[in-house]
Design a protein around this nucleic acid. Structure first.
Lengths: 114, 114
DNA sequence: CCAGACTGTAACGGACCCGAAACAACCATA
DNA sequence: TATGGTTGTTTCGGGTCCGTTACAGTCTGG
């Protein structure tokens, strides 16, 4: 399945969704944060700090801090890996799933009305 | 023209584009900044600080500061309105147009390969 | 058992951003 | 030409994020 978008359509879609994100009451997540969040929810577990850092091409502290703030917002949770206690496993939460469901709705609705 | 996206498709698209933005060398713009940038390039001029603030539902200093940083990056430029010197007109630049062209390409390419 | 490699995290200094409020420049109208 | 309302900007205190570096906990192979 393939979706063809003109330049103007692509930018309009991005603009409309960004505008919706800015205008709603939720605290704005940075691009890095939503990228981490989406990786966790779209790709198969387990997710470790190291893996996420490598996938995004950033340093580990960036991931740690993003998990701190998204953890406060209850969008993700952390747990020690009991098999190898050096690892931290990043896990999904109900709030995180709802947040992304709403995001998908926003994207879908604006794509529909392009 | 209407584009139908499933939940997974919408999130995958967003993830892939966000990942591309994080991984490239350009400094990451915040969601607010790209929203301002897109408004300037997609909607008809003139664009004033006041109008942009109202459109985004944020305060004027937010716009001023975003224009400061994007001005440093040469993505936008400012000029006094000679007709009413209280106004500042926000204008497009070559670099800004190229930036958005690249963004549109990124979005389009990932949409095509959904 | 222990030295080294590997995890994730904390500390640091600097940069940026926020909202609220104060501010300076400018216009309009009486 | 004053005065009130408009514009965009600056300032203030507080917060977040960055990359680098240093650190503490954990595993593993000799």
């Amino acid at each position: 399945m393939s979706v063809a978008l003109s330049t103007a359509q692509a930018l309009t879609l991005w603009h409309d969704v960004a505008l919706a994100l800015v205008r709603d009451d939720e605290p704005d997540l940075s691009v890095r944060q939503v990228c981490i969040l989406l990786t966790i929810y779209l790709e198969a577990p387990p997710h470790t700090v190291r893996d996420l850092a490598k996938k995004l091409g950033v340093t580990k502290p960036v991931i740690t801090r993003a998990l701190d703030t998204m953890g406060k917002l209850e969008l993700v949770s952390r747990r020690r890996d009991e098999k190898d206690r050096r690892n931290v496993l990043v896990q999904r939460t109900v709030k995180g799933a709802l947040y992304l469901e709403r995001l998908a709705d926003t994207i879908g609705n604006h794509a529909k009305s392009l």
